[in-house]
């Protein structure tokens, strides 16, 4: 019997073999898996090329839920709405904040690290625009916050946004596990696009119901909160309303009172 055959019967052989097999499969998968093209590698000058590139990205990353023609699908784990006419603004918001592609089906797509480059997001947007007209990525003049009226933005925010997003834009709960996210540290562009397109549970605020100038005012108000403009009188305790304040008082406040009561009741040495 050769040496190799002897080793083959050793119990360690099974573990070694398993390890080798897993390593090989993993390496092969990493080498062969479909990858998104790197930024600029296939950048092209013509619009039709952008549509083609966008379509490729769409087929590789989005079509499993939204359908190969973005017509939408219904199914338990692969239900996605039709994307015809949602416009590049919706694409820029959903993909640009990492909400799409979703990690797993659920009641709400959560914000997470962005997986595409700016160029790829633009190409996806151009492809979606080619399917039907929809809201566009906003002009720079409406997101630079120059000459924005913060007070007017506050009025509009309190009427239209505060009931879900909290009067300090810290977010809040909706029904059955859904929630309105907090609006701190969101890019002005994405705030604008969210109002314009109404992602997921959010209603739509088009240019007639809240004009572009008013949208800029709202964004300026949110940025003002970020800089502490809404924040007077000590610590905000998260600005989440009475629950946060009560938690602080019931633990730290009452704890101090109890300690004081014990000290008062003790005799001096």
């Amino acid at each position: 019997m050769s040496k190799l055959a002897a080793y083959r019967r050793s119990p360690i052989a099974l573990i070694v073999l398993l390890f080798l097999g897993l390593t090989f499969t993993g390496t092969a998968y990493a080498a062969l898996q479909p990858t998104a093209p790197a930024d600029g590698a296939v950048a092209s000058a013509t619009a039709s090329d952008d549509v083609e590139e966008g379509k490729k990205l769409f087929l590789a990353n989005c079509a499993s839920c939204h359908g190969t023609n973005a017509e939408g699908k219904t199914g338990i784990n692969t239900a996605g709405p039709s994307l015809v006419g949602v416009g590049s603004a919706a694409v820029d918001f959903q993909v640009g904040t990492g909400r799409m592609p979703m990690a797993a089906p659920g009641v709400q797509a959560a914000e997470k690290p962005v997986v595409f480059t700016d160029k790829e997001i633009e190409q996806l947007g151009i492809f979606i625009d080619s399917l039907g007209p929809g809201p566009q990525v906003p002009d720079a003049q409406y997101i630079d916050l120059v000459n924005a009226d913060i007070a007017n933005g506050g009025k509009i925010f309190r009427t239209n946004c505060a009931m879900c997003h909290n009067s300090s834009a810290q977010g809040g709960a909706l029904t059955r596990g859904k929630f309105a996210p907090d609006l701190m540290n969101v890019e002005p562009k994405h705030l604008y696009e969210a109002m314009l397109t109404g992602p997921q549970s959010m209603p739509v605020f088009n240019d007639h119901t809240i004009t572009p100038q008013e949208k800029e005012d709202v964004i300026a108000f949110i940025k003002n909160i970020e800089e502490g403009g809404n924040d007077f009188g000590g610590h905000t305790l998260g600005s989440v309303g009475p629950a946060g304040d009560a938690l602080f008082i019931w633990t730290i406040g009452i704890g101090l009172l109890i300690a004081a009561a014990i000290w008062l009741g003790r005799k001096a040495a």
Binding site: K155, I156, T159, N160, G198, P203, V204, F205, N206, H208, T209, T211, E214
Partner: peptide, 21 residues
């Protein structure tokens, strides 16, 4: 009228999913 701007509303100004106070 739209709150708080006070502008009147045309039906074609609303898109699917629009909400106006």
């Amino acid at each position: 009228m739209i709150d708080p701007s006070g502008t009147p509303i045309r039906p074609e100004h609303l898109t699917q999913g629009s909400v106006i106070h």
